[in-house]
């Protein structure tokens, strides 16, 4: 079955993610309501302003439902602002928004817009050479817990891509380039989650 991937559409570059997913034949839709959140098999939290997205999730009462779905195993990929939302520790924020990943994320870690940059990055598990990565007022992952797999690191040791179970965080914006490989990785994570759920359902059915 084709997984339905939602892109959180509170604010930010949600259209670009949807275009990237469509380009690889995946059904993708904007998520603004509880019903839309319930009906997706995986969710992308796009780049944008993390404070704005967090405010809007609270205002529209989606923060708790999203936190619950993540606890139940919903695959989520956060890019840039999305990675900030997923982190358990965000210096400067008393209450990290979702607190789902065992990582510390520093906001605006490279400076202001003048310091935004792009370059080629090797990502573990991504075949076919380096990815072109665009960093815009980007955060950096400056600490990772034991269950977190580091996928890409800068020369100074700061992590810019990592995975913890079905959760994926990137400090950069794969939606701004035509390279589909990270979107394909996320689709694989979503397919695995669906298969696992189906297997658990079958096992539960067999014992009943």
């Amino acid at each position: 079955m084709t997984p339905r991937i939602g892109v959180l559409a509170m604010q930010g570059a949600f259209r670009e993610h949807i275009q990237r997913l469509c380009a690889i034949g995946i059904e993708a839709s904007e998520v603004r309501t509880l019903d839309e959140l319930r009906s997706c098999d995986g969710l992308i939290i796009p780049g944008g302003e993390s404070t704005t997205i967090a405010r809007l999730l609270l205002a529209f009462e989606l923060m708790e439902p999203l936190r619950r779905r993540i606890a139940e195993g919903l695959p989520v990929w956060g890019t840039c602002a999305g990675a900030i939302l997923l982190a358990r520790d965000v210096p400067g924020l008393d209450r990290p928004p979702l607190g789902a990943m065992d990582i510390r994320v520093d906001r605006n870690a490279f400076g202001r817009q003048l310091d935004s940059f792009e370059f080629d990055l090797n990502v573990r598990g991504i075949a076919g050479g380096p990815l072109h990565a665009v960093f815009i007022r980007a955060p950096a992952i400056t600490a990772t817990g034991p269950g977190v797999e580091v996928l890409a690191m800068l020369a100074d040791g700061r992590v810019v891509a990592c995975r913890q179970g079905a959760l994926l965080a990137t400090a950069f914006h794969p939606e701004l380039t035509a390279d589909p490989r990270l979107h394909e990785l996320f689709v694989t994570i979503v397919r695995e989650a669906i298969a696992r759920r189906a297997a658990e359902g079958a096992a539960a059915g067999a014992t009943a």
């Binding site: 520790d89 065992d102 990582i103 510390r104 520093d106 605006n108 870690a109 490279f110 400076g111 310091d115 940059f117 792009e118 370059f119 080629d120 990055l121 090797n122 050479g129 380096p130 990815l131 072109h132 950096a140 992952i141 400056t142 600490a143 990772t144 817990g145 580091v150 890409a152 690191m153 800068l154 020369a155 100074d156 040791g157 700061r158 992590v159």
Partner: peptide, 22 residues
Amino acid sequence: MTSTSTTPASAGLPSANGGGKV
């Protein structure tokens, strides 16, 4: 959690690990 870096943000841009230029 283990800290991945002690380099301050002001230390400038990292060098590319994919062989390209920043």
